[in-house]
Amino acid sequence: MTEDLEPVSTPDKEARQWAMFCHFAAFLGMIFPFGNLLGPLIVWQLKKETSSFVDDQGKEALNFQITVAVAMLVCFLLMFVFIGIILIWVVGIAALVLTIIAGIKANEGKAYRYPFCWRLVK
């Protein structure tokens, strides 16, 4: 006996754009301190009720930025033994690349999961 599975619907254009904004709001961290955390948090809180896709991607973006903030703090502390100088660049470049990939995937309507992400917000 086979069940007819409903195809997963693609989120509408507005939901995809807001999900993309959730990821790209992390770039506010380049303008002011903790903007990488506040940007995704604000966009997610404003739009999480409009779409389950925006809610999911907003949580994912926020969780990743929390993970990046913790990793950067550890790298900063490791600067005193010099390995942190290299690691902070690795974490920064990885965060930049993964955030761009996530924003593009969200705009395509695909739910993106960051690798090495500590998921605190459920």
Results as ranks from 00 to 15, higher is better:
M1K: 11
T2M: 12
L5G: 09
S9A: 15
P11I: 09
K13W: 09
K13S: 15
E14N: 14
A15L: 04
A15Q: 10
R16M: 00
R16N: 04
Q17S: 08
W18N: 11
A19C: 10
F21S: 02
C22E: 05
F24I: 00
A26T: 08
A26P: 05
F27I: 03
M30Y: 14
M30T: 00
I31M: 12
F32P: 07
F32R: 07
F34E: 00
G35M: 01
N36E: 00
L37K: 10
P40G: 03
I42K: 07
I42E: 03
I42N: 02
V43C: 01
V43E: 04
V43G: 00
W44I: 11
W44G: 02
Q45H: 03
Q45C: 00
L46D: 01
K48E: 09
K48H: 08
K48W: 00
E49K: 14
T50M: 10
S51A: 13
S52Q: 15
G58Y: 02
K59Y: 03
A61W: 10
N63P: 05
F64K: 11
Q65Y: 06
I66W: 11
T67Q: 08
V68Y: 03
V70D: 07
A71S: 06
A71F: 06
C75K: 07
L77E: 07
M79A: 01
F80I: 12
F82R: 00
F82T: 09
I83R: 03
I86R: 01
I86E: 04
L87K: 06
W89G: 01
W89R: 04
V90S: 10
V90A: 12
I93P: 06
A95N: 11
L96P: 12
L96T: 10
V97N: 03
V97F: 09
I100D: 04
I100N: 07
I101V: 14
A102E: 11
G103S: 00
K105P: 03
A106C: 11
N107S: 05
E108T: 05
G109H: 06
K110L: 14
A111R: 15
Y114A: 02
Y114P: 09
Y114G: 07
P115F: 02
F116L: 15
C117W: 08
C117M: 12
W118D: 13
W118V: 15
W118L: 15
R119H: 07
V121E: 00
K122H: 10
K122D: 09
